[in-house]
Each structure stands twice: as structure tokens, then as C-alpha cells.
Simulated assay, not measured.
Amino acid sequence: MVKEIAPNLSYHYWGLGVRGLELGEEADPSVIVRGSEFNHDKEIEMEDDEGHMGTATTRMSSYRTKASASPSFTDKCRYREGWEDIWLLLLGSDDGEGNIRKQTHTGTSNAYDYTFKVNVESPQDPYFATIYNGFAKTVNDAYKYEDCLLSEFELSGSNEEAPTYTVTFQSNFPKFHQTNPTRTFPNTTIFPKSAEVRIYIAPQGSYTEETIAQYEYPCYLDWSLSVNNNIEGVACSGDAFGESTKVLGNREGTFNITLPWTEATKNLEYKFMGGNTNVATTTVSPNNDIKTVWIVMTSAQIGSNVGVNYKTIIKIPRIVMTAVNSPQSGSDAKQLELEGNIEESGTESFIETIITTALSDLHIDNTPSN
């Protein structure tokens, strides 16, 4: 008797390809994501065919009504390994003339500044992606998820752990028995560590890196930023079984952070209750407390460019605080928990992200389909 061996799950790996706006159904896996978790969330839905037959049941048979998937994965914020492309899928980067907002970083030849933000004046459709999940132990056991739209994004970190992001897509049911995508990686993987993350919480307004510096809260415990596009996959009459038409929902965004309750942070609670007025006020205000939040992550130097580092600046111009509270009993250290909803003004992007990186081009596949 031949004994079989079940291989380890570690042989799984996945790749991402952004579909160019003129491309057809799919994109090649242009970048391999060295992530830690992948959830296929694929589902085949069934319904019963019922009718009276003069027996003890009305269930005669069942049939398939829908096949769909919502793949998701988690990874650190790895430059050149999908981090920049995720922001393209979330916000876009259209400059108004159909070009990606990219420029060579001042004084360098191999560092680039990408700006990702919603084009409020001329809203653009989001990019589609194709996700491949390979299995290196065998040849034709990969899955290919087509027509992927980014539905949910969450970025989180703490004072002890490097920040990670999780993205969830709405896609067609995956094609299976696919050939494994080619695995290629940069020689070194670069991502921000916990000590390389700076959080700034300022009164709502416009800032530069210099002017917002006074509002840094360096001693945070944990934080998270999330965006939910509430995308649904709807099976329309013209869609083949396993495919769906993607329907954009109402976008929602939140920001949360936990800080030690100290002389430096306690006024955030009083400002919230007082409607961001005089901190000495003693009565609650009907006015909202609106903040501008920056998350800045600085990593390794880019090549030989002294003073030029891999860097991500996430600007959230308008967050309406919904709760700022600290416990008033217990034996643990006193903490301050902040929660807020991201609001949109209609005149600027609800988030703007600037990434300085050595990646010369985003992983967009513009090869026409045959």
C-alpha cells in the first residue's frame, strides 16, 4: 500500500495583477505578495426544489443558484511588493488626463513619489485586479480570481508590532486547475517597523510636514484605519455562472487609536466633550470635534540617496470624532480610546496618500487580451 503525504499549507503563495483600463478580462500576476494569510471565501449557493409528491417531504432536489468569492489577504506594508498597488486599487491616481500621479523624487534618479487620491473633479472607475493563489508543491493546482474589485481595506499597527494591512475583494468564482504563477521577489523586503510609524492628530485644517509636527502623539498603543466600499457581486442575466456584476456601495471609513492617558493626551477627551473649543470648558457642546490625522511611516534609505527613504504619508483631512473616552475605574493603566468617522467634503479626496519608493512603475498589466 502506497502511503500519501499531505503537503504543508506553506506551499501556498499568491500574486496580484492590476488590470489596465484597456485590458480585457484578466491581468497577469505582476507582483508576488509575501503575505501571512489568505482567505478564499468562495461559496456555491444552493436552493431547494420543493413540491408535493405524496411522501414525507416536499424537497425533491436542489440546484445551484450562485457561485461567488470574496478573497482577502494580509501582509506587512512591503514596498515594491504590492503596497503601492493596493493604494491604486483603493483610491486611484488619476491626474485628470489619464496619467498616474508619479514624479521622480527631487535630486534622485531611482526614487519616485506616487500620489494616490480620488479625482473629485472627474471621478474615475476603480481599477480591477486579478489575484492568483498558487501551490508550489504541485503544477496545476492554482486558483485564479478574476474581476476583483477592492471592497474593504484595513491598516493597523501597535507600539510593538509592524503595521499590517488586510484587503478584501469581490470577485468571480475562481478558475481552478491553473498553472502556478512565476515566483520572483526583490532581493530584500522593506517594510515599516512599529518604531518607524508617526501619528499626528491635529485640529481640522491644511498642513505641511513642518506645521503638523507639533501635533504628534508618539506614545500610542494601537491604531487602525479602515475603508469599506461595500461592494456586492450581483449575478445578472448576462453573466455566466460563477461571474457577477460588481455594484459599488456607499463608502465608509473609520479611524481608531488607543493612547496612554497622560498630561499630553488627556485634553483630547476634554476637547471632544467641549466641541473642540476652549479646553477649560466644563460643559458639553453641541459642536462636532473634527480632526485632521496623518499617519507617516518612514523606512530604509533608497539605494545611495542619502536622506531619501521609503516613506508613506497618509493624510486624512476630515475625521469627525464619535467617541473619546477613558475608563474611570479598574486597576489597569489609564488609557484613552479615540474613534472617528472619515467624512468627505466633496471638494477633496477623503484620503490622500503619498508614497516614496524605488518602484519605477506600478504593477499594471496593459497587455491586450487575445
Rank of each mutant, 00 (worst) to 15 (best):
L268C: 03
G303M: 10
E337V: 14
E84W: 14
N229D: 06
Q204W: 04
M46C: 04
V18D: 00
V306Y: 08
D222W: 09
M53Q: 12
T58D: 15
D289A: 10
T312S: 05
S329D: 13
G51M: 13
F116D: 00
F38V: 08
V293H: 06
D361V: 00
Y112G: 06
V118I: 09
N370G: 15
T208E: 04
H40E: 13
D222V: 05
A240C: 09
I316F: 05
G233S: 09
V284Q: 15
F153W: 11
T104R: 11
D48W: 04
P218C: 00
K175N: 13
E152L: 01
T130W: 02
T262D: 13
K76W: 04
M273R: 10
S331C: 05
I44C: 04
W294D: 04
G340S: 08
E343K: 12
T283H: 04
E196I: 02
I314H: 05
G340C: 13
A213S: 15
V234T: 01
E26F: 01
G340A: 14
I342Y: 07
N366P: 08
S68R: 09
R59T: 07
T74R: 14
E196S: 07
S360K: 10
Q214W: 05
L268S: 01
K42Y: 09
S30V: 05
E22R: 09
F241E: 10
V306L: 07
Y200K: 04
E232P: 02
